[in-house]
């Protein structure tokens, strides 16, 4: 099993590397197109800001590499948002895998949302063996609305998509690598797809 973690300028990849490593797999961290294209599973992590991340991806031709992937990819946090069409964060056009936009929370709740919140209406093999209303760890100020791609939903003032899927593209707004046992199970499910 060859797992590639896409390396770019958004956040550190330590946690996701360690999480996969705990499953007994040694992932590679790379921005090399060839290595990404030949991996069995691809992780697209991300903590940071949308426009500078998109700029970096384009400069390194990683935008088209990602769009062309046929094997399972898991976007995490900013990684998920970049897979959408457009982000309100600095009005950034994104990759457009998911035909929907990323909006900023406007509720009276604190922003960013930081902490453990529950996921429900789970509907994907990504959540095999996981019950509705389990808790996972979130850190974000922007969100994806509920859509036909929604495979998990969460409530933070409004109900939004905490995970999306379209074909081979999977994505979670939360951090499975920081979500204890439940998170490990989700990563394991992805690796076993």
């Amino acid at each position: 099993m060859k797992v590639a973690i896409i390396k770019y300028n958004a956040g550190n990849v330590c946690s996701i590397y360690n999480a996969i490593n705990r499953l007994g797999i040694e992932p590679i961290i790379t921005d090399n197109s060839e290595q990404i294209l030949t991996a069995d599973k691809i992780i697209f992590p991300g903590v940071g800001e949308a426009s500078s991340a998109m700029q970096y991806l384009k400069q390194h031709n990683l935008d088209s590499v990602i769009k062309d992937l046929k094997q399972p990819l898991l976007g995490i946090c900013l990684g998920m948002q970049l897979l959408c069409r457009f982000s309100e964060e600095n009005n950034t056009p994104c990759l457009g895998i998911f035909n929907q936009d990323i909006k900023k929370f406007t509720s009276s709740n604190k922003i960013p949302q930081i902490g453990w919140n529950s996921i429900d209406t789970l509907s994907s093999e990504l959540f095999k063996g996981i019950n509705n209303n389990e808790y996972v760890y979130f850190v974000h100020s922007y969100y994806a609305e509920i859509s036909e791609n929604t495979i998990a939903a969460t409530d933070y003032g409004i109900k939004y998509s905490s995970a999306l899927q379209k074909g081979n593209f999977y994505a979670t707004q939360f951090h499975p690598e920081k979500s204890g046992f439940i998170g490990s199970k989700i990563i394991e499910n992805f690796i076993n797809l």
Partner: peptide
């Protein structure tokens, strides 16, 4: 710590 702990 990071290698061994799966919470923030």
């Amino acid at each position: 710590i990071a290698k061994n702990i799966n919470i923030p």
